[in-house]
Simulated scan of single mutants.
Amino acid sequence: MTDEDVLSEFRASGALLEGHFKLSSGRHSAHYLQCARVLMNAERAGRIARAICQKIPRDLRGEIDVVVSPAMGGIIIGHEMGRTLEKDAIFLERPTGSFELRRGFAIDEGAKVLLVEDVVTTGLSSREAMQAVADAGGEVIAMASVVDRSGGDHGFEVPFFPLIEITFPTYAEDELPEQLAAVPITKPGSRAA
């Protein structure tokens, strides 16, 4: 799947939005990729998961014991990655602000984990999820996502396999361009920022 193929999937599902968005990272952007919309079609979600899986080297895929994703955004693509890899897929939640396993989910001590996200912007949520996996006894051996908007500044210490890298500019609250500041803010993400 080429970058243009991926963007076509986003456009076809109405998932490439323009406006003024406050991202889960707390940064602002004139563009938002609503992965929930692109993943709402199971066949499309499966295609995207298979395309991500093809980016992960075969030997590394063979080491994965379980797929873990953070709620909310990572659940669908994490589940589809589990299906593609024929591994269980579980998710982390933030009931009190910090990621934790719930619903009877557990990670075997020493289990090799593929952490899967929908969109990575700063990498903060992913790094917090990696810590939660380590606290639960697992070892994140690789990270994957549908979209990488980090510009390479994610801070991961494991191999990272995004399906597409997009560098829409993002801005801190105090550095908003006038044109963006004039547009009403939409907060589409799942986390309070």
Rank of each mutant, 00 (worst) to 15 (best):
V133C: 08
H31A: 00
T122G: 07
F161K: 04
Q179E: 11
V183K: 09
A144E: 00
D135K: 11
G26H: 08
V116C: 01
V146D: 07
G74H: 14
F168K: 08
E165P: 13
D174Q: 01
E18M: 05
R27N: 14
E4H: 08
R191F: 06
S125M: 05
T170G: 12
V158F: 03
A42E: 10
I77P: 15
I77F: 02
L60T: 05
L101I: 09
Q131I: 07
V133G: 10
M1N: 08
H31T: 05
A49S: 04
Q131H: 11
L92Q: 07
T96R: 08
L33G: 15
R149P: 15
D59L: 03
S13N: 15
M1R: 09
G110S: 05
S8P: 12
I141V: 10
F91P: 15
D59I: 02
A182Y: 02
F99G: 04
G14Q: 11
V158K: 04
F91C: 10
K112L: 03
L101C: 11
D59N: 12
P169K: 04
T96H: 06
D3G: 14
G97H: 03
E128P: 14
I56V: 02
A49E: 01
R50N: 13
Q131P: 13
T167V: 11
E175T: 12
G151V: 05
N41Y: 03
A106F: 01
S8L: 00
A15F: 08
S13W: 13
F99D: 01
S150D: 06
L114R: 09
V183I: 14
R102F: 05
R61C: 02
P70S: 03
A142Y: 00
P184S: 05
L92A: 06
V66P: 14
T167A: 08
A45Q: 10
S13D: 14
R58M: 02
E100Q: 04
M143V: 09
S125P: 14
L17D: 13
L114S: 06
R47W: 01
T170L: 06
E157C: 00
V38N: 12
V146P: 15
A136S: 13
L85E: 07
L180G: 06
S8D: 07
Q131F: 04
Y171D: 14
A42P: 15
A142C: 08
V38K: 13
V133N: 10
I164M: 05
A89K: 12
L23W: 09
G14M: 09
A144F: 00
H31P: 05
T121E: 04
S98C: 09
G137F: 05
I77T: 09
Q34F: 03
C35G: 14
L39N: 15
V113K: 12
S98D: 11
V113Q: 11
E165G: 12
K87F: 06
Y32K: 11
E43P: 13
G62R: 08
G73C: 07
K112H: 07
E139D: 10
G104M: 00
R37E: 14
E109A: 01
P162K: 02
E86P: 09
V113H: 11
L124Y: 11
H79N: 15
P70D: 05
P57Y: 03
G155Y: 05
F10R: 10
L115Y: 02
A51L: 02
A132M: 01
V133R: 10
L176W: 03
D153C: 07
S98K: 13
E100Y: 03
D174V: 06
T121H: 01
T122S: 10
M72L: 08
R47N: 06
S150H: 10
R44V: 13
I77A: 03
